[in-house]
Write a protein that binds this DNA or RNA. Structure first.
Length: 302
DNA sequence: TTCCAGGGGTAGA
DNA sequence: TCTACCCATGGA
């Protein structure tokens, strides 16, 4: 017997769900399932009560007058704690509490590639936990997108909690689920290449309390300090740290990774060499929105 | 077969 | 701080 509950979450005045879902690839990485025709996505999630639920998130109306609709399927009764948790992670995933007013005003002033970014665009979907986002970012390094999807799928298949009988429907693995296996067993179950020790070490560290990912969400620390904390994690270099900073809602610094240099070179220097100073000057006017300005300019120019 | 992917760790300067 | 070199995996 499956219980079915629907509830609404008030979204900010300026919010665009389709843009939030498609501004990067996260929506198609397991356990997310993208339902393109409905502009919605679903995922299987463990709840505080211990039961495993399937969530489907959609927007009821067209922007700007939107509310977020969450449909919950779960085997038992949905308690207040479960409901509060679902609302909390939905707000987090969709960044409903981030204020983009200033960014949208800057986009309007700049025009060009940014002209279409008002009306609630600019958000990028993220995962309920930093552990999930970090594992996924590590799975995007030095591999093509198809490989990333495969590796994340294998992780979920091997270590996720099941929802019902459908083998496709599982949660993203908890750190302790991965940490319970020795590295060699982990490597035999999931083909992650050289990333396996990094992800296993991360899971063991988080499960055992040696790595505190909450420290990454410390809003009182400067971005440079958060970047330092990120790079202290094995497997996280310039590119991965940059991706995580954006997922953490920090756009004030653009790290000079290869992708950024290549883009700026192609876009502004006719493919010629660019030094760090020249590259930084391109987005100097964007204040704390530099990385977002760069990201969406790159998206719009594709 | 060979190459390489929006990299990163390590050793050695 | 910078540079070689190595690192597994699977798709093209």
């Amino acid at each position: 017997m499956t219980a079915l509950i629907n509830f609404s979450i008030k979204s900010p005045n300026s919010f665009d769900l389709p843009s939030t879902l498609t501004s990067h690839g996260w929506v198609v990485l397991a356990p997310n399932q993208y339902i393109k025709e409905d502009n919605s996505f679903s995922r299987v999630e463990p709840l505080p009560s211990g039961q495993v639920a399937r969530l489907t998130v959609s927007s009821a109306h067209q922007a700007p007058d939107t509310s977020i609709e969450v449909r919950v399927e779960c085997p038992g009764k949905l308690g207040d704690k479960d409901k509060a948790y679902i609302e909390s992670i939905t707000r987090h995933m969709l960044r409903l509490d981030e204020d983009y007013t200033e960014f949208h005003a800057l986009c309007e002033d700049q025009g060009g590639a940014w002209a279409g970014l008002a009306g609630g665009k600019g958000r990028m979907l993220r995962s309920p936990t930093l552990f999930e986002d970090l594992v996924k970012v590590i799975c995007t390094t030095n591999i093509q997108w198809g490989g990333t999807k495969r590796m994340v799928r294998e992780l979920v298949d091997a270590y996720g909690l099941p929802y019902g009988a459908d083998p496709e429907l599982k949660t993203f693995p908890a750190p302790n689920a991965i940490a319970a296996d020795p590295l060699e067993v982990f490597k035999s179950k999931v083909n992650l290449g050289y990333r396996a020790p990094y992800i296993h070490e991360l899971a063991v560290g988080v499960a055992g309390g040696k790595i505190n990912l909450d420290a990454l969400a410390d809003t009182s620390a400067p971005t440079a300090e958060i970047r330092r904390r990120l790079k202290a994690i094995k497997g996280v270099g310039d590119y991965a740290a940059a991706s995580m900073l954006m997922l953490l809602g920090r756009y004030d610094e653009i790290p000079m990774d290869t992708v950024f240099r290549d883009f700026v070179s192609r876009r502004y220097f006719e493919g010629g060499p660019v030094n760090s100073k020249e590259a930084a000057e391109i987005y100097a006017d964007w204040g704390r929105w530099k990385a977002l300005a760069y990201w969406f300019e790159m998206l719009e120019s594709e």
